[in-house]
Simulated assay, not measured.
Amino acid sequence: MPITTKQLIQWKQEGRLIVALTAWDYVIAKLLDAAGVDLILVGDSMSVILGYKNTLPLTLDEIIHHAKAVQRGVSKALLVVDLPFLTYQESTQQAINSAGRVLKETGAQAVKLEGAYPFLVETITRLVQAGIPVMGHVGLTPQSIHHIGLCQQGRTEADGDRILQEALTLEKAGVFSIVLEHIPSSLGSKITQKLSIPTFSIGAGKDCDGYILVTSDILGLSEKQPPFAKVYTNLRQLITKAIEEYVMEAREGRL
């Protein structure tokens, strides 16, 4: 049976850790699903595989295109899709339209939005009321790169308190889970203890309810490696070697 948002909340109550990864195509999605990943995120981190320098240029059409391919490879995992930059910030109606397109066209079960400023919280409340499950995201929010950069957030007491309050506000607005990105582990632990919904750590320590990383990072495909992402294999090196061998054999007529 496919995993649901309610099941994730139940797992938190049971103390069962939740595993999540990102996917950008059918092949990777099918492998993740078969390996037992609980939640698959079609994140705007796919900007990297499209050759963008950051997540900002990604369009709604682009992420929908990839999410449709990912969905075809998923049979059990909960599928969540990021709403790209400026596809939900202009108005609540814009956010509903964007999220509605994602669910209708991709078959995903939920969307993820970054931040917790007052207007966005109101928007999330409306999305949830409209029957659209929402995953929250606080701490380092990559769509705010030109405002906060890519450094760890919540290092001061004041910033830590702000992020905690943001997480509590998102829970009250109705999100079913929250991604905590690149914050001190002590803060990740504190937020997790305060919330009744699952938290996902991406550089937020080991005491969250689940873990999420970018798949290209753990496979060694990324050009720049985040400080919090363990590399489990170096596919970049393996693929390069295999292609070089093919090129050599092809040029020597040994195929």
Rank of each mutant, 00 (worst) to 15 (best):
V134A: 03
L235K: 14
T22A: 12
D33E: 12
V27R: 13
G253V: 02
L21C: 04
V214K: 14
K6N: 15
Y26H: 12
V19N: 10
V179G: 05
A158K: 15
S186G: 05
L39P: 00
Q71W: 00
E166C: 00
S45W: 07
G36D: 09
M248K: 10
I218A: 07
L255S: 03
K112G: 07
L17W: 07
L113A: 06
T22W: 12
A20W: 03
L150H: 11
I178T: 07
G73F: 01
K224M: 01
G188P: 06
I202Q: 01
V74W: 08
T5W: 05
I191M: 11
R236S: 09
L235T: 04
F85G: 00
S144D: 15
R155P: 05
F176R: 14
S186E: 10
T240N: 15
V70L: 14
F200C: 05
M46F: 05
L120D: 14
N97F: 06
L195M: 13
D209G: 01
Q7K: 11
E157C: 04
T92E: 14
D61N: 12
A99Y: 02
A69D: 07
L103W: 01
I191K: 12
G131F: 09
H66L: 07
G73V: 01
S177Q: 09
T106V: 11
A95D: 06
V81I: 03
P184S: 10
N234V: 00
S216N: 14
D44W: 06
T92A: 13
V111F: 03
R155F: 08
A69W: 06
Y232R: 10
F176I: 08
R251G: 02
Q237R: 11
I9Y: 01
N97G: 01
S177K: 08
N97Q: 10
Y232M: 12
N234S: 08
L58H: 05
L31H: 14
Q7P: 00
K12Q: 04
K194E: 11
T156V: 13
T4V: 00
F176K: 13
G210A: 09
G131S: 10
L41Q: 15
F228L: 09
A110R: 05
G149P: 03
L60V: 02
W24K: 14
T106I: 13
E249D: 06
K112W: 07
G131N: 11
Y88N: 01
G220D: 09
H66Q: 12
I148F: 15
Q193P: 00
D217N: 13
I243P: 09
I191F: 10
E105G: 11
E157G: 03
S144H: 14
G174P: 04
T233L: 13
L238M: 15
E171C: 02
S47K: 09
T92V: 13
L8T: 01
I212A: 11
T55D: 12
P84A: 02
P198L: 09
N97V: 00
T123G: 03
S186C: 04
A130R: 02
I163F: 13
E122H: 03
K12A: 01
D61V: 01
W11F: 03
E223D: 10
D25Q: 08
G205P: 08
T141N: 08
G51T: 02
G253T: 02
A20F: 02
H182D: 14
Q71D: 00
A167V: 01
